[in-house]
Simulated assay, not measured.
Amino acid sequence: MRIGVLALQGAVTEHIASIEKTGAQGLPIKRVEELDGVDGLIIPGGESTTIGKLMRKYGFIEAIRAFADQGKPIFGTCAGMIVLAKRIAGDEAGHLELMDITVARNAFGRQRESFECDLEIKGIADPVRAVFIRAPLIEEVGPDIEVLTLYKDEIVTARQGHLLACSFHPELTDDYRLHQYFADMVEDSMTANL
């Protein structure tokens, strides 16, 4: 099983390290054609506007939409969640517009308001350590969205079929169980597509 990490910006090596702890192979994705060689894709944190611009410049918007249309799982973390969202609060245009959520950018404040906490995530037995850095949150969800985590009554992890999104940075801790959850999604999709 090969899981790609979009390598335009963000903590790419940390995501790859977490993927490899699950037993899957992690690969940086720098060119559109490299998507053909992976079974799942992680869109990491960074700055969503910059990631969106780089995705447009290098042809990733249509390529990742086509990847999603094949039923291949995609996991967006922090800014990656914003990139996946159909809607961004404040009427800003979405990027991939794949996941039926409305997200608010920097909902938890600026860099100095960054924090860590333990979160209960549906489908994972014990609390997961989460690092929030200028984190977005999910303000609204469509009917097909499964909410996996609330933090202070705000949605911070959600799933829609083969799409997964979280507000925080799971790659910045030693806890790789959310990556394992995603790897299981990828494995399930590979089995379903046999």
Rank of each mutant, 00 (worst) to 15 (best):
E113K: 02
E140K: 12
E187H: 11
L96D: 05
D126F: 01
H169R: 13
D126Y: 00
D126S: 11
D69M: 03
E154P: 04
D174L: 05
Q70W: 08
G59N: 10
D175I: 07
D184E: 15
F115Q: 11
R159G: 08
V131E: 15
S114C: 03
V147F: 01
I145R: 03
F182E: 07
L178F: 05
K53P: 14
L163K: 07
V128D: 12
A107G: 03
L172N: 08
G45I: 01
R177I: 15
L150G: 04
T173K: 05
I121W: 00
D69F: 00
G76M: 09
V83Y: 03
D174I: 11
A130H: 06
L178S: 10
R56D: 09
V186Q: 06
R177V: 09
A158Q: 09
M81L: 06
T157R: 11
R56N: 04
M99T: 06
V147L: 01
A135G: 12
D174M: 05
V156W: 03
C78H: 07
G76L: 00
G59V: 06
E187L: 07
G109K: 09
D153W: 08
L164A: 07
C166S: 13
G90H: 15
E47D: 04
I155P: 04
P44E: 05
G71F: 09
L164F: 04
R134C: 14
L178C: 13
A125M: 04
E187P: 11
Q180D: 10
L178I: 15
L84W: 08
V128T: 13
I74Q: 11
Y176V: 14
L98A: 02
E47A: 02
A79W: 02
R159N: 11
T102M: 01
V186W: 06
I121R: 14
M99I: 08
E171W: 03
L163E: 04
I145Q: 01
E140L: 02
C166F: 02
R56Y: 01
A183D: 12
I145N: 01
Q111H: 10
Y58W: 00
Y181A: 06
D188W: 05
C78G: 10
T149A: 08
I64L: 00
K53V: 10
D174Y: 09
V141D: 02
M99R: 10
T77C: 12
Q111F: 04
F182H: 04
A165D: 06
L178Y: 10
R177S: 13
D188L: 09
T149C: 00
A104C: 01
G71R: 08
C78E: 15
G90P: 15
P44G: 12
I42A: 06
H179S: 14
Q111V: 10
Y58E: 12
Q160F: 02
E47H: 04
R56P: 01
R134G: 15
A158G: 11
I82Q: 11
V141R: 00
R177T: 13
F60A: 03
I51K: 05
A130G: 08
E154R: 15
I61C: 03
A66D: 15
F108E: 08
